[in-house]
Design a protein around this nucleic acid. Structure first.
Lengths: 196, 196
DNA sequence: AAAAATCCTTCAAACGTTTGTTTGATTCAA
DNA sequence: TTGAATCAAACAAACGTTTGAAGGATTTTT
């Protein structure tokens, strides 16, 4: 631990900084000062600013691979969707920086997008699409549904809620205590819609 | 027009650059070169890089104010929601840069977020919430719906579809020819859900 | 066991670029 | 001849990276 003390201190300090200001909005001096280490340690341990950013992103997107576990479970498709929504909420609550990197890379991609972010997102969406196809073939869902549109619709409902927080914080209560209610509302709309 | 030829050329050149790389990812020399004007024209016409960015953002977010027109129309709430979805799709198709600024400011806010972006987003969400309340009071929707969660869910379905394009372009067909089908699917899910 | 050599880590300082902005001269139409 | 518009040039500041010395622990040699 004492070995790579500076290394882990740099990642810990760089994560909230990159998340808040983006790759180009943060200087190596800023990161080093926040980590309490010399700025040359960035090149020493990571080989440069860009590779430090890549290390942060790799760590941040690792939890997304666990979505694959949902697909392997022995439950009906609708329960898998609810598990996905719950896992997404839990993930964002546990790590408040992930969504920032997620959307920052989608909007202003760095070289990391192709290698780290895009594969991770494609993996999740693919699972949702296949889960929906599975449900369709077992006649659990309406047969006029488009699997891809529907998968993106569900992912959009839950992700957009967190994305919009900085803008709608005064309009909508985003407290974690309401998460259970939010999940139920989203699943209700997804399954039976808003009509009476 | 010949008067502020350089001025409009700067805005036209800066818009796709800022949209693709973010405020900090673009240099004034890059913008000036793309516009074909001297880099000192940025300070001359706008008073600096930051004010040029603000001018771009003001122009980009202006169309969002037209959502208010939907609220004033004399139709039932469900039709207003469909009009909102259609207007959103049309807006993104007409201006492919708006969503970039939208999410870029939500994720890595500049000083413009509080003055331009946040009010614009709040305005749209407020209208959606009020439309939903209106529908609830007329007993058009299920009475156990939360207006804010439901409004964000609808907005999320359509916005997330466009946001995810760079990552899911190979998985999902994002062609404009499918827009009508997409709108139909989203409105179907929103109104009656995915169950048979 | 003592001394010497090697390794990994850290540091202040300096490197050459690039940054956004300002300057003062120049152009050209009114 | 006044004024706005444009230009190349220069400005200080900040950028990411490299450097070479210094520290301290470990290993190797005596």
């Amino acid at each position: 631990m004492a070995d790579n003390d500076a290394r882990s201190a740099l990642i810990a300090a760089a994560t909230p900084l990159f998340a808040a200001k983006g790759f180009n909005g943060v200087s190596v001096r800023e990161v080093a000062a926040a980590a309490g280490v010399n700025l040359s340690m960035i090149s020493y341990y990571f080989g440069g600013k860009e590779k430090l950013y890549a290390a942060v992103l790799t760590e941040q997107f690792a939890p997304l691979q666990r979505v694959a576990e949902i697909q392997l479970m022995d439950t009906d498709p609708l329960m898998k969707f609810e598990l996905y929504v719950r896992a997404t909420v839990a993930r964002y609550r546990k790590n408040p920086y992930l969504l920032r990197f997620y959307t920052s890379e989608l909007t202003n991609p760095t070289p990391c997008f192709d290698t780290i972010v895009k594969p991770a997102i494609k993996g999740v969406v693919q699972i949702l699409i296949e889960t929906l196809r599975d449900g369709l073939s077992h006649e659990k869902f309406r047969d006029d549904l488009d699997p891809t549109d529907t998968a993106l619709a569900l992912a959009g409902m839950i992700n957009f809620y967190f994305l919009l927080e900085p803008a709608t914080g005064e309009l909508v209560d985003h407290a974690p205590e309401r998460d259970e209610e939010l999940i139920r509302h989203i699943m209700d709309i997804f399954t039976t819609g808003v009509l009476r």
